[in-house]
Amino acid sequence: MQLNGSAGDYEVYEVFVQYDHLEHHVHVGSVVSSSGEMALQVARENFLRRDDAVNLWVVPRGQVFATSYEDADFFAKEMDHSYREASGYPENAKLWKSFKQRAIELEDLIRD
């Protein structure tokens, strides 16, 4: 999206901040600026006034490639990987507990 103004064309930039060398960049918001260099300055003033950071990215919104909200097929799973999910573990624990309660002890076998 470009905004036309008397001082030139302005563009929306998405701002990403890396707070520590071991962390990923995090999207923190957007700024409107006439250039990338100015967007860096505006982002620093708006988003790093109180926080420390090690890196700052600004990306023109028009350069961000995104999926459409209507494209649900894009996120559909192509193969069934339900065997990888841990949803069955609580049920397995209940079954194991009931099995152990009903299991015959070695002493019971010896007595018989």
Rank of each mutant, 00 (worst) to 15 (best):
V32P: 00
V64W: 02
P60A: 11
V17S: 10
D9K: 15
Y69W: 06
H24T: 14
H27L: 08
G88K: 09
H24S: 15
K77Y: 11
S33D: 09
H25R: 10
E11N: 03
A43N: 08
S68R: 07
V54F: 10
L95P: 00
V31T: 08
N46P: 00
E37Y: 09
H24F: 13
A86V: 03
Y10G: 02
V32C: 07
S68T: 04
G5N: 13
D71P: 05
A86K: 06
V58Y: 07
H81D: 07
E85I: 04
H25E: 12
Y10A: 12
E37D: 13
Q63M: 11
W57A: 04
Y69S: 15
S98E: 15
S33E: 06
D80V: 00
G36F: 03
D51C: 10
D52Y: 04
R50Q: 12
A43S: 12
W57T: 04
S35L: 09
L22D: 13
T67Y: 09
Y10R: 13
H81S: 01
Y13V: 09
K77H: 12
D20F: 04
A39F: 14
R44S: 13
D52F: 02
Q41W: 02
V64F: 03
R102Q: 11
D20T: 10
L95R: 06
E11R: 14
E85N: 05
R49A: 15
G5K: 08
L95A: 07
E70G: 01
V42F: 04
A39K: 08
V28L: 04
A72P: 00
V32W: 06
E14M: 11
A39P: 11
Y19D: 14
K77T: 06
A43P: 01
V64R: 06
E85Q: 09
Q101D: 14
D73Q: 09
D71R: 04
M79K: 03
L56P: 03
G88S: 08
F65R: 14
A86F: 02
S30A: 02
S30D: 02
V28D: 12
L95G: 01
P90Y: 00
N92Y: 03
S33L: 13
F99I: 02
V28M: 05
V12C: 11
Y19R: 13
V58W: 05
T67Q: 09
Y83E: 09
A76Y: 05
E91V: 08
E11I: 06
F99L: 10
R84K: 14
N55E: 07
S6F: 09
L95E: 05
E78K: 14
S87P: 00
Y19M: 05
Y89V: 11
Y13S: 02
A86H: 03
L48V: 01
W96T: 07
N55C: 03
R49N: 14
D9R: 11
E78G: 15
Y13G: 07
V54D: 06
Y13F: 15
M38E: 15
A7T: 12
S33W: 11
S30Q: 02
Y13D: 06
Q18N: 13
E85P: 00
Y69N: 11
K94W: 00
S87H: 10
Y69D: 15
